[in-house]
Amino acid sequence: MTFDWHFVLATLPAFLKAVGVTLQVGAIAIASSLLVALVNSAILVLRAPLLRPLVKGYVELARNTPLLIQLFFIYFALPAAGIRLSGFASAIIAMTFLGGAYLTEVLRAGVEAVPRAQIESGLAIGLSRWQLLRHVILPQAGILSLPALFANFIFLLKETTVVSAVAVPEILYTTKSYIALYYKTYEMLAVMTALCVLLFLPLSLLLARLERRLQHGQFGA
């Protein structure tokens, strides 16, 4: 079975562009998810009366439904209600909807993971609630959340492949298109696999290293 290197080389520019789209969609989704999560966490920690159950309901809904359904709902169902969005916009909104919920959970767990003893020592030396939050809880919650945050960032980046279903030209969509056009299935699948491994494997190994470093660092458990 011969491997058509010539064809692969010819499609490389298109794939590079596709990688760019993957990274673009991923980056925007991560950033907006983080924003949503920060707002939600503020609502949860400060216990805002009406908003708290809303946030909790949102998190449950987004975490217990597939991204594909969320995506299809925005792209295919909303037009019936008069909201017509492009594939790209639908992708961003759907991924933010999902990612925001996941990251809210991560930040919430991070705040809860700050040892009770820390809060008690802070109170014992006379810190106010605001000072406690700012100097004791948030910094430690931040560091404790880092591995889980990073893991979720990688997860969101990998989920961009799902948005190929609404014709966003990331790597999977590009692969499918070229297979449909030129029938070079073997070569295109190989390229896609190679791209995934090159893109995601280093991130996964980086995450493992981050987790190990934080184990030996300030926090024992």
Binding site: T161, L172, T175, I179, Y186, L189, M192, V197, F200, L201
Partner: peptide, 22 residues
């Protein structure tokens, strides 16, 4: 483990569905 972590599930679906026959 690392193969299934690095390659998203949807990609695996396509690999198996289109690639296996080949």
């Amino acid at each position: 483990l690392e193969l299934f972590r690095a390659i998203p599930v949807l990609v695996w679906l396509y690999l198996l569905f289109f690639g296996l026959p080949i």
